[in-house]
């Protein structure tokens, strides 16, 4: 018989008792950790709004949980009364001038109240006394007077802001380096780079200067020629007045009582008559095209019949060999398409 079956009662007894023992141990540990048996010391405070405040939320001092919010109520003046329970272990931390501030958790999770203890060595406040919050005038005054021990913020936003501050410092340092490099007062890589750029620009300047020395005489010669041409055009005895002179060659040619014009006109008339004749010929050819086509077709039919007759004669045994061979003569017309490639 298997062990479990044989000792079923013992196994089941252990199974159930161990579970119950676990439950009891968990409850005892919960009680100890949550201070179920510690009555603590009660205080009360006041806030402007209950946003972020819930009964049971922890009260922290430098990250340690020192108590809990017992209740949150709206009073007759529309202010929020908050009753706190401070654990006995931390009662001596509640010094006079202590202030409570609401600690907002990230994404609304993990919030609580922070106790900012008073800066003094006085004995702790009496139980059930008023602990001002940062929402109250008294709390703000205590903070303004520096009577409250405020630790440096160490939340996520502070960490992000610290990172931003570090980044900005880095950017500032970079800008200083760039500035000193531009001034030439530093001896880093950027300065070397800028000096190199400067040297390159100087070299370019000298190259351009040398090139300009060669180009300038040519440009001067072109400019001089243009000036000379312009002067000739403006000369009253130059080319233009000679062309426009009524006694000049051009005027003499043109002033011939329209003889030149008439000759040109007669040539154009003859050309016109020739073109009219060509057009008439073209029209005649267009009209005669069917007849020409018929003649060509008849000629082709006749040639085919003649070819048949010649074939018959060639095949006639009586006449076979009677026709003398002719030496073929190549055509004089030569077309590029007939070329062998």
């Amino acid at each position: 018989m298997r062990f479990r079956i044989r000792f079923a009662q013992q196994v089941v007894g252990f199974f159930i008792l161990a579970a119950l023992a676990t439950l009891v141990v968990v409850l005892i540990l919960m009680g100890l950790n949550q201070r179920w048996f510690d009555r603590g010391y009660s205080f009360y405070s006041r806030f402007q709004s209950a946003d972020g405040l819930t009964p049971g939320m922890p009260i922290h001092l430098r990250g340690f949980e020192i108590g809990k919010v017992t209740s949150v109520d709206l009073n007759s003046n529309n202010r929020v009364n908050v009753v706190l329970q401070i654990y006995s272990e931390y009662y001596d931390k509640i010094k006079p001038n202590s202030v409570l501030e609401l600690e907002q958790g990230t994404f609304g999770i993990g919030g609580g109240l922070n106790l900012l203890p008073g800066k003094n060595l006085l004995p702790p406040m009496e139980p059930d006394s008023f602990l001002p919050s940062t929402d109250t005038l008294l709390g703000k005054n205590l903070l303004a007077q520096g009577l409250v021990d405020q630790p440096a913020n160490n939340d996520q936003m502070s960490a992000i802001l610290a990172e931003v501050q570090t980044t900005l410092s880095g950017v500032n340092l970079l800008l200083n380096n760039v500035n000193s490099a531009i001034d030439g007062t530093s001896n880093n890589q950027l300065t070397g780079l800028l000096q190199g750029v400067n040297a390159t620009l100087r070299s370019l300047d000298s190259v351009l200067t040398e090139s300009a020395h060669g180009l300038v005489p040519n440009l001067s010669a072109i400019t001089a020629n243009l000036a000379k041409l312009s002067a000739q055009l403006q000369d009253p005895k130059g080319l233009i007045p000679k062309l426009l002179d009524p006694k000049g060659s051009l005027a003499t040619i043109l002033n011939d009582n329209n003889q030149l014009y008439n000759e040109v006109q007669s040539i154009l008339d003859q050309v016109n008559q020739t073109l009219v004749q060509v057009r008439g010929l073209t029209q005649y050819l267009n009209q005669s095209t069917p007849q020409i086509t018929g003649v060509i077709e008849d000629t082709r039919t006749t040639l085919k019949k003649a070819d048949d007759v010649m074939t018959g004669l060639a095949n006639n045994p009586l006449l076979k060999g009677g026709i003398p061979e002719k030496k073929p003569q190549n055509a004089t017309f030569h077309d590029l398409r007939d070329e062998d490639f």
Binding site: R4, A8, V11, V12, F15
Partner: peptide, 8 residues
């Protein structure tokens, strides 16, 4: 036996 089969 039921606790043995169901639980254990």
């Amino acid at each position: 036996m039921q606790i043995l089969f169901t639980g254990v």
